[in-house]
Amino acid sequence: MSLLAEIAVSVLIVIGASFALVGSWGLLRLPHLMARLHAPTKATTLGVGSVLLASMVYFFAIGKGVSMHELLIVLFLFLTAPISASFLARAYLRAHVAPDVLPPAGEQGWATFARRSDDAHDAPATSATRAPPQD
C-alpha cells in the first residue's frame, strides 16, 4: 500500500471521526429538539460517509478491487437520513407544538395535524382541528 493511499485513508478517517464527534456534541448541547435534529442528521451522516469512503480507498489500495458494499451503505444512509429527520420533526410537532402557534399553511392546513381515518383512538393529538382560518 503506497504512502499516498495511506495518507488519503488516514485523512478521510480523521475528517469523518471529527464530523461524527461534532454531531454528537451538537446533539448534547443544542437547546431544543428542532435545533438538535440538525447536528446528528447532517454532521454524523457526513462523517460516516467519509469513513466509508476511506474504507473504499483502503480496499482499492491494497488490491482487493473496487468494492460496491460501501457505496451501497453510503447511498442508503444518505437517502434515509432526511426521511427519518422529517419523521422525527413531525412526531415532535404533533406531540409538543400547538397548531395555532405555527404559521398558516394554505387552505389545507398542516398535514401533520390532520386527523386520519387510521388513527388509533388514543393517538397523542393535541388538537385535531385544521389550521386556524386566515385573516
Binding site: 485513508v9 478517517i13 469523518g16 471521526a17 461524527a20 454531531g23 454528537s24 446533539l27 429538539l33 438538535r36 435534529l37 446528528p40 454524523t44 451522516t45 462523517g47 460516516v48 469513513v51 466509508l52 476511506a54 474504507s55 483502503y58 460501501e70 451503505i73 444512509l77 427519518s84 422525527l88 412526531a91 415532535y92 406531540a95 409538543h96
Partner: peptide
C-alpha cells in the same frame, strides 16, 4: 426530555456503530 429526543439519540448511535464496524474492517 422528550421521547423524540431518545429516538433521535438511538438513531445516531446506530449510525456511529456502523462507522465503528467499518473501522474494524479496515
Amino acid at each position: 426530555p422528550t421521547t423524540t429526543d431518545r429516538v433521535l439519540a438511538v438513531d445516531t448511535m446506530v449510525i456511529d456503530v456502523i462507522a465503528l464496524i467499518v473501522l474494524l474492517g479496515i
